[in-house]
Design a protein around this nucleic acid. Structure first.
Ligand SMILES: [Mn+2]
Ligand SMILES: [Mn+2]
Ligand SMILES: [Zn+2]
Ligand SMILES: [Zn+2]
Lengths: 140, 140
DNA sequence: ACTTAGTTTAGAACTATTATAAAGTAGATA
DNA sequence: TATCTACTTTATAATAGTTCTAAACTAAGT
């Protein structure tokens, strides 16, 4: 394979540090996910459809799942669930909260929510993170 | 079908007000779910397995799903998701929060968490509820 | 008791995801 | 650069949770 010009090096590095060889398909996925101004939320199916739309030779479903799982395990993606039995992924890996508005997911920056009171972790356990979901509905 | 003695009337009432006739199967499900000292969390598969274990004539999968969905739509159950693409249901329908501890779900009473600061809803929207998930991990 | 709209059920269908295994490739080595 | 091999991609099958279908059954009104 052709050596990539080094402007995509940071996307390649995410793959390598996720334990993945930077193949053509994976570099495209990593670049698609992380070369953007704003973070976003996606399902694997959405990712596959939007990337494959513009390609003649499609990337396979298994490659999308494998790559997303490895990036998630390495901490470059966060996973969450709505109430529809589908995994969603978030390219914003900082600790933050969400509005859920009929299937639409909107970030809430961490400093927009603060706590007056929080419970202790049960003994033998400690708190990994605290995440808030604010469900929305339409006015009237 | 034999008329139920009226000590199960409140479980029958939940069915009726969910738009369901109180059939033998549904009354057993409703009674199993709501005749207890403590609320609990379950998946439909778990509910089916634990109820059918002690029965000679099994209740069908479709009846479990139908009944749970109707009870949920009527507000007698709340639904939530972990990160495993399965729907969980909660017989505690009051507003409350959860610890998630490796697939185990523990209630946190509403008054154990209070907020110093919360964001406004986006315009045209209002807040339906605010729910906190505290993810746990083992000490050390 | 009769009637019928609603219900139960087995099984098929569907959707998201994971597993399989054959063919292809990255990257190390000669 | 040619060779080698462990890793990767892919088509496809398998699985799991859930929903749909339609025939047999039943609650409950008359
Ligand atoms: Mn997954
Ligand atoms: Mn459901
Ligand atoms: Zn987010
Ligand atoms: Zn709960």
């Amino acid at each position: 394979m052709q050596k990539m010009n080094n402007k995509n090096q940071i996307f390649i590095d995410k793959l390598r540090s996720s334990g993945l060889r930077p193949t053509k398909q994976r570099v495209e996925i990593s670049t698609f996910l992380f070369k953007r101004k704003k973070t976003f939320h996606f399902t694997v199916e959405e990712l596959k459809n939007s990337m494959n739309l513009k390609r003649s030779k499609k990337i396979s479903t298994a490659t999308f799942y494998n790559t997303v799982h490895a990036l998630k395990s390495a901490g470059y993606l966060k996973e969450f669930s709505l109430e529809n039995n589908t995994s969603y992924y978030d390219t914003n890996i900082s600790s933050h909260h969400h509005f859920f508005d009929n299937g639409k997911v909107i970030d809430i920056k961490s400093d927009k929510i603060t706590f007056k009171k929080l419970p202790e972790a049960p003994k033998g356990k400690k708190i990994k993170n605290v995440e808030v979901v604010i469900r929305l509905e339409n006015n009237n």
